[in-house]
């Protein structure tokens, strides 16, 4: 019987691509991978070859993934560039969803209260002085921002903060920080504003409409209309 190959190696101009079968047992796979790599390793070349691993519909635990990587690395001049799989765990999916969703909340964040969300925040209400909102992504406030807003808490410098009335005590984006000017004289009618980190790594406040040019990724709608 002509046994189906569990490991297929393909050469591309970027390096090697290993397709690992997702039906056979893990032990079998490891054995065959080791065998194949030993056969085909030509140690004459000094050049490093990058390897991409595709695991198909097989889920590799972190330990297994590390084991496979180690196995490949042991062969001379092979470097693992990435490991790709078609499947992720529920937890990973959940986290991915949370990090990418816009959470809408209708309430007033009062002095002493802290609201934190993993993804984007859409607040229908105000942030009063002494109150804080934090988000892993962007912050959109439909009311007045008079307290502290911290966008991109996990280090996302692309994050933005926008509010209908922008009178914050402090604005933080990623690890940058800015505070309100001490002389709060300029009053009067103001339109919706946004804050972002500019090219000089400074937090800048501008009209909301500039966002579509500097942060085109904010549009989630695919295609035209």
């Amino acid at each position: 019987m002509n046994r189906k190959q569990n490991v297929t190696i393909k050469g591309t101009k970027d390096g090697l691509t290993l397709h690992l079968d997702d039906v056979c047992s893990y032990e079998e796979l490891k054995k065959e991978l080791n065998q194949k790599l030993t056969e085909s390793s030509r140690s004459s070349e000094d050049r490093l070859i990058s390897v991409m691993v595709h695991t198909g519909n097989r889920y590799l635990s972190e330990a297994q993934e590390e084991e496979i990587k180690e196995l490949i690395r042991q062969k001379k001049n092979l470097v693992v560039e990435s490991v790709r799989s078609n499947v992720i765990t529920k937890n990973e999916a959940e986290k991915l969803k949370q990090d990418n969703e816009i959470l809408s909340i209708a309430r007033i964040i009062r002095s002493g209260q802290v609201l934190e969300v993993p993804g984007d925040l859409l607040l229908i209400g105000d942030v009063n002085p002494g109150g804080t909102v934090k988000a892993g992504g962007n912050i959109f406030i439909m009311g007045a921002l008079k307290g502290i807003a911290h966008a991109g808490i996990n280090g996302n410098k692309e994050a933005v903060i926008s509010a209908s009335v922008m009178k914050p005590t402090q604005l933080r984006i990623s690890d940058s920080l800015t505070r309100a000017p001490d002389d709060n004289v300029e009053e009067g009618k103001r339109e919706m504003e946004c804050a972002y980190i500019d090219e000089d790594n400074q937090i800048t406040i501008d009209r909301l409409q500039v966002l579509m040019h500097i942060r085109p990724n904010l549009s989630k709608l695919q295609g035209g209309f």
């Binding site: 009062r110 002095s111 002494g130």
Partner: peptide, 12 residues
């Protein structure tokens, strides 16, 4: 007013 805001938050 700031403290009142805090108390209202707690009362809510």
């Amino acid at each position: 007013v700031r403290d009142a805001d805090r108390i209202i938050g707690l009362l809510e």
